[in-house]
């Protein structure tokens, strides 16, 4: 075969791969059998430590001695509504901003207990994990209706399709086109968000979606979007909406 014919066949197979719209699958479908077994067993799942830590913090008064989360939301968060937890991130149309579950918890603690944890602080991720875990098995249900939300989903999708960093890959290339293929012995997932915050076996710690996106961009040798940037929020929103319908698995176990 000539070099040009080879090139053409390469281009064809790339476009065919893009044309195949895969069935929506949780990251659970792409992890190894023993990782799945670890996630399914609450005594083996390391993410349950974050749930327990979060449960404690939920009942603990802030450093300033203010209210606890439990004062309003119940000792075990039983007054939180799982169906509402499943709608995060939400769009606040009055203030024209996206509010992630993490930023909702921070806003609440700042207002009620005058205690602000830094973004992605392990304690804050533990609280987020505990709260999200209250909605385990509830399908993700991010709002995709309305002109404003459709516009921000479109912007999120553009960020998803943009190549970044020295590796020069977009989220789309790996998590849409090549999902299911192996990179160094690990299957590439579809980048679904229903398991997050999740325990990551690679770094050996919890990651919420915000941190996971940062870790992905670091791997691409790209400059990550700052945790509280507009781009990060748009990506979080788009990715979460893309997982609509998948049951929440928090805390999932992922590579």
């Amino acid at each position: 075969m000539s070099i040009k014919a080879l090139m053409i066949s390469g281009l064809l197979s790339a476009s065919l791969a893009q044309a195949v719209m895969a069935e929506q699958l949780s990251g659970y479908a792409f992890i190894k059998d023993d990782t799945r077994a670890m996630q399914d067993d609450d005594f083996a799942n390391p993410g349950l430590i974050a749930v327990a830590t979060g449960a404690e913090l939920f009942k603990t008064a802030s450093r300033s001695g203010g209210k606890t989360c439990a004062d309003c939301h119940g000792e075990a968060g039983e007054k939180l509504v799982p169906q509402r937890i499943a709608t995060y991130p939400v769009y606040d149309s009055d203030n024209k901003r996206i509010i992630s579950l993490q930023s909702r918890i921070t806003a609440c603690r700042t207002r009620v207990a005058d205690d602000t944890l830094p973004v992605n602080h392990p304690d804050l991720i533990a609280l987020e994990t505990f709260v999200r875990n209250r909605a385990r098995d509830v399908p993700v249900n991010v709002n995709t209706e309305g002109t404003e939300i459709k516009a921000l989903l479109k912007r999120g999708e553009e960020l998803y399709n943009t190549r970044y960093g020295l590796i020069d890959m977009s989220c789309h290339i790996c998590h849409t086109v090549y999902a299911g293929q192996y990179v160094r012995g690990q299957k590439i997932s579809q980048g679904q968000t229903n398991g997050f915050p999740a325990y990551r076996l690679g770094p050996g710690e919890m990651a919420n979606l915000n941190l996971r996106i940062t870790q992905c961009m670091d791997l691409m040798r790209a400059e990550p979007f700052p945790s509280d940037s507009e781009e990060m929020k748009l990506l979080e929103y788009y990715l979460s909406a893309r997982s609509n319908g998948l049951p929440i698995e928090t805390p999932a176990v992922r590579y």
């Binding site: 943009t162 190549r163 970044y164 960093g165 020295l166 590796i167 020069d168 670091d218 040798r221 790209a222 400059e223 990550p224």
Partner: peptide, 13 residues
């Protein structure tokens, strides 16, 4: 290269 990490700016892989 779009948006390289600061430490990799100006570098090849």
């Amino acid at each position: 290269i779009h948006r390289p990490a600061k430490i990799f700016k100006g570098r090849t892989f």
